[in-house]
Nucleic acid binder design. Structure first.
Lengths: 180, 180
DNA sequence: GACTACGTTCAGTATGTTGTGAATCTGGGA
DNA sequence: TCCCAGATTCACAACATACTGAACGTAGTC
């Protein structure tokens, strides 16, 4: 039971990470590999990860390349060990989350605002009818929404967790005070 | 140029929605169809959506079934029109977003906390070694993170946009005051 | 400068997803 | 009750993604 209990725990975490990764649009198995790396806690080489995970080396290599841009893993090469690289799991989940939502949010905002500008321009060119003015209103609504979204996004991706918690507990107590 | 400009705008929006949907893990074409419905602004039947989008009826039907749980579309059946149903796009993006993150966030928290409990139990069963105590620490960190995450999630998915904006501008001005 | 130990890239297979038209089901009206 | 107009379900073809082992490239060592 000695190794097994440890391995059970490891696989439990890796599996949960796999499912979570999927929710974020990342590859299931990349989440699994990240979970192993996170659980073990110390830097591992590609070959160690292969042994640990059972995936092919190419898969693990691709996983690392995919996880790096999100800063979920860090690459470390130690001198005197040739080309060998070690990977370490990032453990600061707040930063990971903030970066993720920053990236995704910015992308969405960019896509939508560009489209909204173009659409607005088209509608302005068209002769005004019921349809076009209705559509213009919709476009304007969306523009307003994304303006607001950008403000909130900037705040939440820049604020420290401490500030966020202060704010929440403050507002929460404020609300309680307002109750009859 | 009359119809064309209107249609250009429509497709621009639909395409942006398609790409955005993809970012949320929803089917690209379902996002496209939602975009059309949103842009047109009035309820449409399946057949109208088929004509509008060019997709097969089964695709549109599946799209509606997929979008309904997120409350992105609403089904309306008017009496005296047989079985015919009309679909209307939800336009309140704040609520949509809040519901989405509520669903996703809860799911992630559930998956992770369950796994963390199980893992903790396994580790408690195992004889204490360097590995297990290290892993226990990791598990505890994650538990702490998800506890905090739950608090923030509850706040952001329940607060009205007005409250959120008040908070942001308040904190923002506070920060400015603190500058030298 | 050549060998070695590694990481990365590549082409192929296996698996999953998307969109379709035909078949099926079902509520409402006659 | 029997149709009919509509929605839903299904099996399938087209397409995309994931994982692999083998080939390749390359930094470091001798």
């Amino acid at each position: 039971m000695t190794d097994d209990a440890y391995d059970d725990a490891k696989l439990e975490i890796a599996d949960a990470m796999a499912r979570t990764a999927e929710m974020y649009g990342l590859n299931r198995s990349y989440g699994h590999i990240y979970g192993l790396l996170y659980f073990v806690g110390e830097p591992m080489s590609l070959d160690e990860l292969v042994a640990e995970s059972g995936y092919a080396k190419s898969t693990v290599s691709n996983a690392m390349s995919a996880l790096e841009p999100y800063h979920l893993v860090h690459r470390q090469s130690s001198p005197g060990e040739g080309r060998k690289v070690y990977f370490e799991a990032e453990t600061d989940f707040w930063t990971i989350m903030q970066e993720f939502f920053e990236q995704q949010g910015r992308r969405e905002i960019r896509i939508m605002t560009r489209a909204l500008e173009t659409a607005q321009a088209s509608l302005d060119d068209a002769p005004e009818t019921d349809r076009t003015s209705h559509a213009s209103a919709r476009v304007a609504e969306l523009e307003a929404f994304y303006d607001q979204a950008e403000t909130l996004l900037s705040f939440f991706t820049r604020a420290s967790p401490e500030v966020l918690f202060d704010v929440v507990s403050e507002v929460e107590s404020r609300t309680v005070d307002d109750e009859p």
